[in-house]
Design a binder for these strands. Sequence first.
DNA 1: GTTATTGTTCGCAAATATACGAACAATAAT
DNA 2: ATTATTGTTCGTATATTTGCGAACAATAAC
Lengths: 108, 108
Amino acid sequence: MANKDYTLNQEQVARFAKAMGHPARIAILGFLAKQTECYFGDIHEELPIAKATVSQHLKELKEAGLIQGEVETPKVKYCINRENWQLANKLFGEFFGQCVCKKESCCK
Amino acid sequence: MANKDYTLNQEQVARFAKAMGHPARIAILGFLAKQTECYFGDIHEELPIAKATVSQHLKELKEAGLIQGEVETPKVKYCINRENWQLANKLFGEFFGQCVCKKESCCK
DNA sequence: GTTATTGTTCGCAAATATACGAACAATAAT
DNA sequence: ATTATTGTTCGTATATTTGCGAACAATAAC
């Protein structure tokens, strides 16, 4: 084992990836990405899961920084966190772009 | 709840993302992406975890299709699965690109 | 003050994920 | 045949994730 520990970049990419690692959360993000109107109820209607579960997924996405929410009593409005969305886009782009295997395979 | 179920695209993105949702696996992918020589021992040396755990992470990455391995007794050579790497790159690019929040925020 | 609406939080159960050491498998070297 | 090298698999322990219904909170409407 070498110098141990992971870089901040690796941790950040993994954090974003982990948040995106469930179809329901991908569906939520995709839904939010396509609009500017975005209430909890609308999101819930799009998904085949209970509202408690939806709320939990939203919480995880929020903690990962990919979305944000604001209360408009009695509703709650969610949307993409634009800044972190762009950061994630950049990090994933760099991550995939670093592969030397663009033209030739490594293994056979 | 609407039409239920997730699309194949959503499932695939989530599957790739889930596989990338751990710093050790991000480190492994990053390491592999930068070379054409890539034996288990080299990967293990880069990581702060036991070989059994490394082997397990490699298995997950292989099952997700992001890497592939071939035995060169007594060693095992791993590398990026070029085809799926490019697919992942494409899917993530499209995913992040679909956001309408490129120039204006949705929420305040 | 009830009642209705909209979401969140709590408590729980079941399933997965993470990590490790020990045992094992396959070959090569002695 | 023993021994050494390189990884995988097994068994196990612990932690996290996923999912749900029920209870709760915050307003608004009556």
